[in-house]
Design a protein around this nucleic acid. Structure first.
Length: 475
DNA sequence: CTATGGCACGGATT
DNA sequence: AATCCGTGCCATAG
């Protein structure tokens, strides 16, 4: 089934009607993420009678659903070779209890009724914590997530949830705290203040986020919102100027409305804000050895069941009335093409992830620090496809790492991430605030040559205050 | 004088 | 061809 397209270049000059159609469609499918793809397929399915959704076949061994005759569990090889990751297409996971929940007998909107953004946000968060949830916590999590407003805040009372599920409030609080730790940080908070606090607290744990800011949010929230810096300074024990800077810093790097925030923190060059919170398109997990695990990569298939040509339709064509014959044949061709193109899409995606997983294995397993510099161009050469193919495949898709983090695939090609993490480490290891120049020198010693100006930019990207505002980081 | 943030330019990447 | 990113220079605050 594997036909590669190495010899085809993507210039429009290539002729030959069949190939062009092929190409055009493969391209457009390739750059879709699962969310868009699902809609596309649904649409196609509704319009084209030649298409049929294959019934969900189940794996005789484990009972899981099959896609393209492959069972995602049983196809895993017995013998693990840590350095050849397993890659395959797998059905989208679904979360069982995502139905509607009612509060006070009144129906809460089901997922389908919620705005697209909210649905994505809820699922996006759910994916991050799924593994941490006890079975009996799931309904609670679903309840909270479905109740979020557009800003990612929770407008209802915890007691209400607790009553509804007949569980102690502490349980609900526990689930809420799990949710709040997710990306976007602070989601599920009940007030903007709480959201800010969660964000600040989290940053405080990781990097040395100034305690002053934490205190400002905790004790001087009134003053903070009213821009009453004098009073704020007094409360947190700082000068008015400092208070003011801290306030602007908070304004810049924290967000009282989590759902309005972006991915990571500031970076995300690609324009589109709308489809940011959605299910990952690829799932990476690992099995086997603790110290030398094998990567399992699942390219998620956005619909349940597989796409097929309707066998009845095929028969019907033969006996079609003449006036319908042409139309039906077209439908048939279109369906055929679509299936083929989808196969190609999956194929390239699988190939891509395979290579990516080999190259960035350390990064996937051990985090940002181990990201190796990698360009789309070099990968394209190795895979023998056009660069733009990689670009299309990478853009607007996300992947979930074994750690549970969901990141855009384009992060695999980030040139500056590893240096940024080194900077973070340097700063958090330091007791005395280091100026940007000093950091630059330290980097120099470690073999990284970056300009002072650049350090400043990275620092800001990571949401770290300038040296003079990073006072004593004594905890 | 030192530390930073802003603007803008050139080279690399897509 | 369009865009992104690192950098240098300059203005400004402390």
């Amino acid at each position: 089934m594997a036909q590669q397209s190495g010899h085809i270049h993507t210039t429009k000059h290539t002729h030959g009607p069949l190939t062009t159609a092929h190409l055009a469609q493969t391209m457009s499918l390739l750059q879709m993420n699962n969310h868009e793809l699902a809609e596309r397929i649904q649409g196609e399915l509704a319009n084209n009678p030649a298409l049929e959704l294959g019934s969900d076949k189940r794996c005789p061994a484990c009972g899981r659903k099959l896609v393209n005759q492959i069972c995602s569990t049983c196809s895993r090889p017995e013998s693990f070779d840590p350095h050849t990751p397993v890659v395959f297409v797998s059905p989208q996971r679904q979360f069982s209890s995502r139905r509607k929940y009612s509060s006070n007998g009144e129906e809460i909107a089901s997922f389908e009724e919620l705005s697209a953004q909210e649905e994505d946000l809820a699922m996006f968060v759910l994916n991050q914590i799924r593994t941490e949830l006890e079975p009996n916590e799931r309904p609670i999590a679903a309840h909270i997530l479905t109740s979020l407003d557009e800003d990612g805040l929770l407008p209802i009372r915890l007691t209400e949830i607790a009553l509804y599920h007949h569980v102690p409030i502490s349980k609900v609080e526990h689930v809420k705290s799990l949710i709040q730790k997710c990306d976007p940080l602070g989601v599920g908070s009940q007030t903007p203040q709480e959201a800010l606090w969660v964000q600040a607290y989290h940053l405080h744990e990781n990097s040395n986020f100034p305690e002053l800011a934490l205190k400002a949010i905790e004790d001087g929230f009134q003053e903070l919102t009213q821009k009453n810096y004098r009073a704020l300074g007094k409360i947190i024990g700082a000068t008015t100027k400092q208070a003011e800077q801290i306030a602007t810093f908070i304004g810049q790097s924290l967000n009282p409305f989590p759902a309005r925030t972006y991915w990571g923190s500031h970076r995300s060059p690609t324009n589109d804000a709308p489809d940011r919170y959605q299910n990952p398109d690829v799932l990476i997990s690992c099995t086997g050895d603790e110290e030398d695990p094998q990567l399992i990569i699942e390219v998620l298939w956005p619909i349940f069941g597989s796409l097929k040509i309707n066998p009845h339709f095929r028969k019907a064509i033969a006996e079609a009335p003449p006036e319908k014959n042409k139309e039906w044949n077209e439908d048939y061709q279109k369906a055929n093409l679509l299936i083929k193109c989808l196969g190609q899409r999956n194929h390239t995606l699988v190939q891509l992830m395979q290579k990516l997983a080999v190259k960035q294995r350390e990064f996937i397993l051990h985090g940002d620090l181990h990201l190796k510099p990698l360009t789309r161009a070099s990968l394209a050469e190795e895979l023998d496809v056009h660069e733009s193919t990689i670009s299309r495949a990478v853009n607007s898709k996300s992947v979930q790492l074994p750690s549970g983090k969901i990141i855009p695939i384009s992060l695999f090609f980030d040139r500056s991430l590893h240096i940024r993490t080194v900077i973070k480490d340097i700063i958090s290891d330091e007791e005395k605030p280091l100026s940007d120049t000093k950091i630059t020198k330290m980097l120099e010693k470690s073999g990284f040559s970056v300009a002072r100006r650049t350090v400043a930019k990275y620092r800001q990207m990571e949401g770290i205050l300038p040296a003079h505002l990073r006072a004593k980081t004594k905890v």
